[in-house]
Design a protein around this nucleic acid. Structure first.
Lengths: 216, 216
DNA sequence: GAGCATACCTACCCGTGCGTAAGGTTACGC
DNA sequence: GCGTAACCTTACGCACGGGTAGGTATGCTC
């Protein structure tokens, strides 16, 4: 056994809570760069400046680790959004603030979030976790639309509402992808562009304007 | 070595072109059910009623095989869409037909397409292939919007145009996901709902109406 | 300063599955 | 009928990486 060469002077022992965060940071980084399967536990451990068994001891299996990442990131994101939209503003204002927060978050965590998110869409084990999160978002958006509709004395079928909300959320996710791939792009501008499609359309719907397929 | 038990009477030898299609069918099926990594070449070969080395002989590596699947499916889809939208119709009619074709295709290939597509989003090697396809779609949509704009004497910055197109394509992809997950849902209805958000918004934009962030 | 818990390590096992080597069999041309 | 090329097989090599066994150091408590 080699005596430890102390050029880097024997790293400190740290309390569990701190190490766990470091591990999660490393995991998010590696998972997003390499993808879930290509990422190796060794590399994650290495990047966290720790050895593999520690990761297993603290965060468990590779899958569990990934879920932990997903969980932390999605929680942070939901908090960012929830903190932005006060419930008693007009609908467009709320939507605008929500979008700004959303794109702001993604813009600030390009690496982390968007790619991590892209990973999760494929593989069964994570679909549940992700679907739950998307569900919460859809619910929020649908609630918002419904609220605005009722305020103007209108109503829409539940499925229609869900699908429209789903479409809006989907468009946002896609633009988030776009944002993550364009490092020079501005989050605020992206949010504005999103509003320009989403809100103009939604606003028409809220006013009772609808489009019908041509009879042909 | 066992003599071949001929309950299934010694399958025919088939020409390459036919076998290749069978293999691709099997590959699409297995990849979509299991995901790229979980799928094994043995299983694909098995499902195609052939042995593994044949797959390697004809379609190459696992990655190459997956790309071949992606390629075939995306080509089919683009053809379905291209065949639907005649270039000299009014913008909304073209958009409508394009969307109908798109959702129709996805609805008819739920298994195949949507899940396969979801797979590709994650892993680096396929990102290129997928980005190319999405690029073609975005280009088509952007071209359509631009055309409609010019016809009414307006113009938009190139980036704005791209982002809006990207958002529309993204929303469609998301609704396609939704459609793939809801076996009872109707493709035509979904297309109509999509139109109700997308077109009403795009139409406003085409008329020169825009939304601006509140000064606050 | 003994004892205990917690942080941490090196080294290994072993399943899984991609990719291939080497050989058998059927059909078609001549 | 017979060669030859295309079709198809069984059986294996081998690397990679998830997960663990078992042992060492460090700091905290009394």
């Amino acid at each position: 056994m080699l005596a430890r060469v102390s050029s880097t002077p024997t790293f400190k022992r740290l309390p569990r809570a701190v190490r766990e965060q470091q591990m999660l940071d490393a995991a998010v980084k590696v998972f997003s760069r390499q993808g879930f399967h290509a990422a190796s536990m060794d590399e994650i451990a290495d990047d966290a400046g720790i050895s593999k068994p520690m990761v297993y001891a603290y965060l468990g299996t590779k899958e569990e680790l990934f879920i932990a990442c997903l969980h932390r990131e999605s929680t942070r994101m939901m908090e960012a959004i929830a903190g932005a939209a006060a419930p008693d503003l007009p609908a467009d204002e709320r939507l605008w603030r929500g979008l700004r927060a959303f794109f702001g978050f993604v813009g600030a965590h390009r690496d982390g979030w968007a790619v991590l998110y892209r990973q999760a869409r494929g593989s069964q084990p994570f679909a549940a976790e992700l679907a739950a999160m998307r569900g919460r978002l859809v619910e929020v958006v649908a609630g918002m639309l419904d609220h605005a509709l009722r305020a103007s004395g209108r109503e829409i079928g539940a499925t229609d509402l869900e699908v429209v909300a789903y479409g809006l959320v989907g468009a946002s996710e896609s633009l988030a992808d776009w944002l993550a791939d364009h490092p020079e792009a501005d989050a605020g501008k992206t949010a504005t562009r999103m509003m320009n499609v989403a809100w103009l359309g939604a606003d028409q719907l809220l006013r009772g304007v609808t489009w019908h397929p041509p009879t042909a």
